[in-house]
Each structure stands twice: as C-alpha cells, then as structure tokens.
Design a protein around this nucleic acid. Sequence first.
DNA 1: TTGACATCCTCCCTTTGGGAGTATATAGTA
DNA 2: TACTATATACTCCCAAAGGGAGGATGTCAA
Lengths: 223, 223
Amino acid sequence: MAHGLTTTSYAILGLLALKPWTTYELAQQMGRALGQFWPRAESKLYEEPKKLVALGLATADRESVGKRRRTVYSITDDGRQALSRWLPLAGAPPVLEFELLIKVFFAEHGTKDDLLATIGLVRAWTEAQATLGVHITGEYLEGRGPYPERLPWILLTGQFLQDFLNMVELWADRAAATVETWPDDIRTATPDVGVLEAMAADNRAILERADQRRRASPPAAEP
Amino acid sequence: MAHGLTTTSYAILGLLALKPWTTYELAQQMGRALGQFWPRAESKLYEEPKKLVALGLATADRESVGKRRRTVYSITDDGRQALSRWLPLAGAPPVLEFELLIKVFFAEHGTKDDLLATIGLVRAWTEAQATLGVHITGEYLEGRGPYPERLPWILLTGQFLQDFLNMVELWADRAAATVETWPDDIRTATPDVGVLEAMAADNRAILERADQRRRASPPAAEP
DNA sequence: TTGACATCCTCCCTTTGGGAGTATATAGTA
DNA sequence: TACTATATACTCCCAAAGGGAGGATGTCAA
C-alpha cells in the first residue's frame, strides 16, 4: 500500500473521480455504492479525505450554507493516477464475517427452536436486502440510477451481490427444512452424508474447471 | 454484549466447551473451524482467553514441555452458561469485505485486461478454497473429521461456505464471459438490461416467498 | 413556533489487524 | 552428531478501524 494508503483511501478516490462531494455525501455514497462489500465506520469516512488532501491526492474546498460550514472534496491529477496505479495490483479476496453462522456452528449449546430462530434472522436479513435491491434495480430500470454510463461494470458488482443474496436465502430455506426434520434434541440428529458427498463433488468440479481453463490457455494468461 | 464480551469471546468459549486447548491450538482451531466466517488476528486470539479467565469463564493451567511453557485453557461452568445465554440472542447478519470487487466497481480506471485479471484473481481464490474444501470433506467422508457428533450442524455451516464458494466461482465465470464480449475500451461497453431485470425479479421472488412464509405461519413463529 | 429529521462534523475510547520478534521443541538430512 | 527447517508458544507494538456520543445549523411540515 503506497504511502499509508488503504483500500478505503482508494475507494474514496474512486468516488471523487466521479465528481466532487461534500464529506457527508461521500460518507453516504460510500455506504450506498460500496457499503455491501466495503462497509466502513462513518467517523473514518470523515477522516480519510483529510488524509488524501494532506497527500496531494485531493483538494478541500470549504464553503458555507448560511452559518453552516461544509467541505467539498475534489480529486487531483495525482489522485487519479494513484487510483489507476492501484487498480491493476492484486487485491484481497472476499472476507466474510457472519456471527449468526457462529451460532449455527455451536448449535449444540441451544435448542432446536434457537437454531430455527437463528435461521429466521438470516431470512429476515435476506428480506431486508431484497427490499433494498428492488429499489436500486427499479431506479436503473426506470433510467434514474446514478452514473448509468458505468452500468456495465456496476452490473458485475450488482450481480455478485444479487447472487450472494440469492445464495443466502436458498441456504436458509434448505437449512430450515433440514433442521425441521431433526428431533427436538438436536444433539441426537443424524448427519446427511449425501450433503458431504455433494460438497466434495462441488469442490472437485471447481478444481477440474480450473484445470481445464489452464489447459485451454497458457499460464501467462492467468495471474 | 455482556461484560465486554465480544463475538470472539463466545467463539473461544464455544471451542473451549469442546475440550481444553493450549493457546496455540485455540488459535489454530479458530482459524480452521471458524476462520472462513469469523477471521481473527492471531495476536488477539492469544489475548482473548486471558480475558475469559479474568472473568471466571475459563481457567488457565500453566504447564511445561521441557523448558517451554505453555498454557492450557478450560471452560468453567459460568463459561458454559454465558455461551448458552448468548446463543439465542440476535446476532449480526453476513458482512462482506471484498477488495477485488471494489476494483470491479471502479473498472473504468483500468483496462479490459486489468478487469479480466481481477476476475482471474477471484478464480484463483476459488481454486485454493476448493483445494482446502476437498481435504476437509475428505476427512469427514473417511470418518476422520474432528467432532463427528457435531456433524449435523457443522454441515449447515459447511453447506453455507460451499454454496458461497460455488456462487463466487459461477459469478467469476459469468463475469469473465461478459467482459470478454466487451470492446477493448470497456468504457464503451453496453449494459445487459436483461441482467438488471433478472435481478429485480430475484428480489421480488425473495419478497414473495417471505410473504408466503408469513402467511403460512403466525407472526410469533418468526423473529 | 416547534419538533423531527437532515446535513455536517468532531471527539473519544475500545477493538482489531498484522507484523516483528524471541525462545524452545521436533524432525529430517548431511 | 550437527545443522537447518519448521512447529509450537507467545508477547509487543503501532496503525487501522468501529461505533457511539455529542453539538451546530438547515429544512420542512404540522
């Protein structure tokens, strides 16, 4: 990471590259545009642009609305270049933190109803996410979504998030159905070996497809 | 969170409930068992059990191997109860951090090849994960996996992780195929409205299913 | 006018990440 | 036997980050 810049630094630079924003707008836009795959605490989003200014990657324009002060940040040419230099560098793969899944992992310490309630919370989350998703897709379908010229690659990220949501919902459905078949004392439940075998088969299939891609193209074509 | 206990505290308690562990083993087990959905820095995993001991939720037994000292931690009854009290409480839904997806989101700052390389990194990750997955499923299929009596609910978490992996791989495949169709200057690519419509339909389907579940059971049955 | 909410922001304390470093045990190889 | 690589065991340190609290002013509706 160049000069103490973090992924969040680059994310902010990416947004500034679109247009200048007030800090409040930046914080909001970070939440809306990136919050599902790069959630950041608001206070840090107020700090970060100051750092960019100190490094000459952004500029700060203080202005007033009545007696209220606000700061509009803009990207500099150096900022654009920093962003472009970062983009092709290797980045981190997905990192997941899922507290509810910890509760599933330690289900033996609770009841069948506890476990079903946990799965229910997962479902509630998928519902809230789907409600949000309907609004966002609706905006773009009505031609009102922000930055439509960026839609081709925005759709890639959107598709990822949608796939994730669909996956979580489907998992919750199946998990609930499975747990419902268990005895009241879940500690006496028996595992479904078929699930294990299917997982093993899925992994082998992934490895096989990776192999095929390697054989279909020279090593230089892969990172 | 009771008395400053964190999710990590409860995760450690959950492992201690299985058996006593040295700190090194605890750190390892956290990584193996929970690292995919609760990744934690090693140094914190050495700190955490000390905190549990201070709170009377665990005990520490200092022992020696030759001149090397080590600590074996065990759970107390209070610890078990704290864990059981935490389990039915509401927990946090999935939180994702995916730096590579940020690079997809800001793809306009790079080239088509940059974007394809980014997707390639995602694929490489899925391959490494699948390799790991093959070993783990293999252990259980051969009857050598740890804590087989916990398999029914371990399989729920395993299924989640497998579904996630499958989803990421499929997304990467489709994203690569899509980007391959784009012109060299990706800024001139045109969005596939069908993808947007499919996403909208997926979200509506999720909401519809949630509605049906609500109608099929009284509100008290849901969290 | 008042109250709710939005816009705008700072401060503070705790948690967390991740790297560096040290000591001893173990196993394999020359 | 000596050496080396790796494992086991752990601490320290500094930077990054979370999240809550709090305050000031603007806007809008009742």
